[in-house]
Design a protein around this nucleic acid. Structure first.
Lengths: 138, 138
DNA sequence: ATAAACCCTATAAAATATATAGGGTTTATG
DNA sequence: CATAAACCCTATATATTTTATAGGGTTTAT
C-alpha cells in the first residue's frame, strides 16, 4: 500500500493539474480541500519541489504550480520519491538495492529471479500511468 | 516492499517445495538454513497452515509439509495472507476495502479510478506467478 | 515415561510513518 | 519601507506497525 505521504502527493498534484490555468495555488487550499494537515502537506510539496516536479513562488501572492506536463509525471516517479522502492524485495530494487540477509546466494535464488520479473512487469504499469490519466478520469 | 514475514514465508514455502519427497520438514531446519529466528518463523508457518497452505504433523518426528501443488500457490495468496492488500490504496482494495478519509467522492476520484486499473494489472501478475515458478528458477 | 515437535497467546522492542512545532526567508503591496 | 502573506527548513514528538521474544500447552513416536 502507498503511504499517506504518497497519497496526499497524488491529491496535491491532481489539484494543481486541475488549476493549471491559475498562476499559483496555496498549500492551504489543497490542505482544506482534502482535510490534510497544512504542515504535513507542506513537507510533501517541498519534496516534490526539490525533485523538480513543482515550482513555487515565495512571498505574498505566491504558491505552487506544476512545471511539467501531467503526461510526463508517471506514478512510478511519485511513488519512488515518497515511498521508496517499487520492487517487492530490496534484493531486486533498481533504485534502492540492498542484499537480503537470509539469502545465501542471490545468484541462484528463485525468489530473487521471480521478483525481478514481477518488478519489471510492475514498472511497466507504473511508468505508463501518469498524472494525465488521473486528470482525465475526473 | 514485502514485509519480512512474507519474504520468510516464501523462503519457507520454497524450502518445503524442494523437500517435497520427505514426509515432513522441521521449523528448525528452515530457520537455520536462512538464519531466521525459530519462533518468528513458527508464527509464520502457523499462519500458512491456518490458511490451508501447509499441513503439519505433531509430536516427535513431526513437522510441516506442503498440501498443495506449487503451481497452485500464487504469490498473490501469500502476500495477501501475510502482508494484506495488494491494491495501492485502501479505497480500491478487493479484500481489505476501506474508504479514504481525504476523498470527498470516491465515485468521481481520478486517483481511485486509475488505482483500480493498476490493481487489476498488478493482480494479473501476482496471480500468475506461483511457487512453482520460484522452484523452477532454483 | 520421556523427549521431540508443533500449537497458541501475550507482550516487548525496534523501526517506520505520521504529525507538529517554531522560526527563517522572500516578496507584493500600500 | 513596514507589513503581512506565503513558502522554506530542520528538529522533535506521537502513533502505528513490524519484528522478535517469551513461556508455556498439547500431541505423539519410541
Amino acid at each position: 500500500m502507498l503511504s499517506k505521504k504518497t497519497k496526499y502527493a497524488l491529491h496535491a498534484l491532481t489539484y494543481l493539474g486541475k488549476h493549471k490555468d491559475e498562476k499559483t495555488v496555496l498549500i492551504q487550499d489543497i490542505a482544506e480541500e482534502h482535510g490534510i494537515s497544512h504542515k504535513f502537506l507542506e513537507n510533501i510539496l517541498l519534496e516534490l519541489k526539490k525533485a523538480g516536479m513543482l515550482g513555487s513562488k515565495k512571498g505574498k501572492g505566491g504558491g505552487y504550480y506544476l512545471i511539467k506536463e501531467p503526461k510526463d509525471i508517471p506514478l512510478s516517479r511519485v511513488i519512488r520519491l515518497l515511498d521508496g522502492p517499487i520492487a517487492l524485495l530490496p534484493c531486486v530494487s533498481l533504485n534502492y538495492y540492498e542484499p537480503c540477509a537470509e539469502c545465501k546466494n542471490e545468484a541462484v535464488c528463485g525468489i530473487n529471479r521471480v521478483m525481478i520479473q514481477v518488478r519489471d512487469e510492475t514498472l511497466k504499469i507504473l511508468e505508463n500511468k501518469t498524472l494525465d490519466d488521473i486528470l482525465r478520469e475526473e
